[in-house]
Amino acid sequence: MTIDQAIDGAAVTPEAIQEALLGFLEGRTKSTLSPTEDLFASGLLSSMFAMELVVHLEQSYRIAIVGADLKLDNFRTVQGMTDLVLRLQGGSTAGSDV
């Protein structure tokens, strides 16, 4: 799924979110990533890039990330960001095996 499809209202599945996020991040970092890789520990994600990522997620998935949702752990991995998007869209992340 492309970001345009997410914005245009195509079905947003956990797999599609994860795929789009991996594509975005791999394009920006020029690195191959796994959904569970710690992006901060690897040095691929800085606090400045994390803020850009917040804006990217908000615009791409029409969500608002505020308050307690801005904690670092929500952005540490692609899986964490996928779970955050699903939760903020009203979906369930319980038992997510993405």
Rank of each mutant, 00 (worst) to 15 (best):
L45D: 00
L44Y: 03
S60D: 00
D69T: 07
A41H: 14
G27Q: 05
K30H: 12
E52D: 15
E58C: 04
L25E: 02
L39V: 05
A68Q: 12
M48N: 09
P35W: 03
I63L: 05
A50H: 04
T32G: 02
M48W: 02
K71H: 07
G23P: 09
G23N: 15
L70K: 11
S60I: 05
E37V: 14
F49C: 01
F40R: 10
H56P: 01
E52K: 03
T77F: 09
E52T: 08
R76Q: 13
T32V: 11
F24A: 12
F40E: 11
L57C: 01
G67N: 01
L25Y: 04
S60P: 00
I65V: 13
S42H: 06
L33Q: 02
L33H: 02
S34P: 15
T29D: 03
V66I: 13
S46V: 03
A41C: 11
T29V: 10
K30R: 13
L57N: 03
A41F: 11
R62L: 05
L53I: 04
S60N: 01
M48Y: 04
N74I: 06
Q59T: 09
N74Q: 10
P35E: 11
K30F: 03
T36Y: 14
I65H: 04
G67V: 00
S46A: 08
L70C: 11
E52V: 01
N74K: 13
V54P: 11
T77K: 05
T36H: 14
D73T: 14
I63C: 01
E26H: 00
G23I: 00
I65D: 01
D38P: 09
L57H: 07
E26Q: 07
L70M: 15
S31V: 04
H56R: 03
A64K: 12
T36A: 15
T77Q: 02
E37T: 15
K30M: 02
A41V: 11
I65L: 05
E52N: 14
L44C: 05
I63D: 04
A68E: 15
E37P: 06
A50E: 04
E52H: 08
S47I: 07
M48T: 12
E26W: 04
V78L: 11
V54S: 02
T77W: 06
R76P: 00
E52Y: 00
S42P: 07
G67I: 01
S31K: 10
S47C: 02
L53W: 06
E37K: 12
I63T: 08
A50M: 15
V66W: 08
D69N: 12
G43N: 05
L57S: 02
L33Y: 01
F75N: 01
R76W: 03
E58S: 04
L44M: 08
H56T: 01
S47R: 06
M48C: 07
M51H: 04
T29S: 14
L25K: 04
S60Q: 00
D73K: 08
S46N: 06
E58L: 11
D38Y: 06
E58W: 05
E37R: 08
L72Q: 14
A41Q: 13
L72P: 15
G43R: 05
S47K: 08
S42W: 09
S60W: 07
M51E: 08
S42K: 13
R62T: 09
L45C: 07
K30Y: 04
A64D: 10
K71W: 06
L25S: 03
K30W: 00
